[in-house]
Amino acid sequence: MSRILFALPGNEVLTASLATILQAQVGETAIRRFPDGESYVRILSDVHQKQVILVCTLHQPDAKLLPLYFLARTARELGAASVCLVAPYLAYMRQDIQFNPGEAVTSRYFADLISGTANSLITIDPHLHRFHHMEELYTIPAMALHVAPPLANWVKSNIEKPLLIGPDEESMQWVKEVATLANASYLILNKTRQGDREVQVTQPEMAGYPDYTPVLVDDIISTARTMIETIQQLKRLSSIPPVCIGVHAVFAEGAYEALLQAGAAQVVTCNTIPHVSNGIKVDELLAEAIQATVSQRKV
C-alpha cells in the first residue's frame, strides 16, 4: 500500500525528512483561517486507497485539533485506506485523575477525540504517570516510541565524563536506561511541586563526582523551574556548568532564556517540537515506526 504524508502547519521540515527516508509522497493541502477564525481545510492530492500519515506535533494543541480533525475526516471521505497520526509530542497527559471536585480528566477526553480522529497513533515518550500503557487511554493502536538510545548516543559523543541527573523518582526508569546505554553514572533527586511554576528539589550528592559534567535529563522542559533550581544547587557543589537535555522542548515563554541565564552550559532537545535547542533527531525512529504500521481496521 502506498503512503502519503501531510504536514500540518509547522511540521513541514520533519514531514519532508520522513518522506525522504520512507521514499513516500508529500501531499498538498490548503489550510487557513477565515476572518472569523474558523478553519478552512482542503486536500489537493489523491489519497484514495492510500495510507495517509498526518504529521502534527501537539504542543499548544487547542489551535491544532480542529484542523487536524477536519483533515483526517476529509481523507476518510476521499477514500483513504487508513489514517495514521504521527504526533511526536502528545498533549493532555497531565490531568489523568480528578485532583479536585469538578475537574475535567482531560487526558481521557483528549484520548477519545484522537481515537475518533485517526486509525492509529505514533508518539514519542508520552508523559505517562498513573496510566502505564497507552492502551489504558486510547482505543486505537497507539505506539509510544522511546528516545533513550538517541539520547545516550548524544551523551557519549559530546560529553567525556557525564553524570546524569534525573529530577524525581518518576524519571528513574528512563534516566537509568539512558545512563546504562551511555555507560554513565546517574543520580535521582526528589522533587516537590508547589505550583505551576514553583518546585523544590533535593541537593545532589556530588561528593563522589568532582570532575564529572552534570547532565540534567527530563522528558519535558516547560517552565524549566526544576532544572533552574537544580542548577542553583549545583553551583555550590561543582565548578563545571551543567548540560540540560530534554526530550520535548515545550518551553513556556522566557523559560529557555531563563535556563541559559541560570548557568546551563548547553540546552539540547529532540526535534519532537521545533525549537532552536533541537540537537537530537528522531526522524529515523519515527520512520521505522511508520514503516511498521499497517492498517488496523477499515476506514
Rank of each mutant, 00 (worst) to 15 (best):
M1E: 06
R3L: 13
I4C: 13
A7H: 10
L8E: 11
E12G: 06
V13W: 03
V13F: 06
L14G: 10
L14V: 07
A16V: 08
S17A: 15
L18K: 03
A19T: 10
Q25C: 04
G27C: 07
G27P: 11
G27K: 04
E28Y: 03
D46Y: 07
Q49M: 10
Q49I: 03
I53Q: 03
C56A: 15
T57G: 09
T57I: 02
L58S: 01
Q60W: 04
D62E: 15
K64L: 08
K64E: 04
P67E: 13
Y69N: 14
L71A: 15
R73T: 11
R73Y: 04
T74W: 03
E77G: 05
E77T: 12
L78V: 11
V83C: 12
V83H: 01
V86Q: 08
V86Y: 07
P88R: 00
L90E: 11
A91I: 00
A91E: 00
Q98G: 04
Q98S: 15
N100W: 08
P101E: 15
G102H: 09
E103S: 02
A104Q: 08
V105K: 01
Y109H: 12
A111H: 02
I114A: 02
S120C: 08
L121G: 07
L121Q: 06
I122M: 07
T123L: 06
H127N: 14
H129T: 07
R130K: 09
F131G: 02
E135Y: 05
E135Q: 13
E135H: 11
P141N: 03
A144M: 09
L145A: 02
V147G: 05
P149N: 03
L151C: 07
N153K: 15
W154H: 13
N158M: 11
I159T: 08
I159M: 09
P162F: 10
L164D: 05
L164S: 07
D168W: 00
S171T: 05
Q173E: 14
A179C: 11
T180H: 11
A182S: 10
S185L: 02
Y186W: 14
L187E: 08
K191E: 03
Q194M: 12
D196C: 00
R197W: 01
V199A: 13
V201E: 02
P204N: 12
M206F: 12
G208A: 14
G208M: 08
Y209W: 08
P210S: 05
P210W: 07
T213A: 02
I220R: 00
I221P: 02
I221S: 04
T223K: 00
A224R: 09
T226K: 08
T226P: 14
M227G: 05
Q232N: 15
Q233L: 14
L237G: 06
L237D: 05
S238L: 00
S238M: 01
S238I: 02
S239C: 06
S239P: 02
I240N: 08
P241L: 15
P241H: 12
P242C: 11
V243A: 10
A249T: 08
V250F: 00
V250R: 01
V250A: 03
V250M: 00
F251Q: 10
A252P: 02
E253S: 12
G254E: 05
Q261T: 11
Q261M: 11
A264F: 10
V267K: 10
V268D: 06
T269Q: 01
P274N: 05
D283H: 12
E284S: 11
V294E: 14
Q296K: 06
R297E: 10
K298T: 13
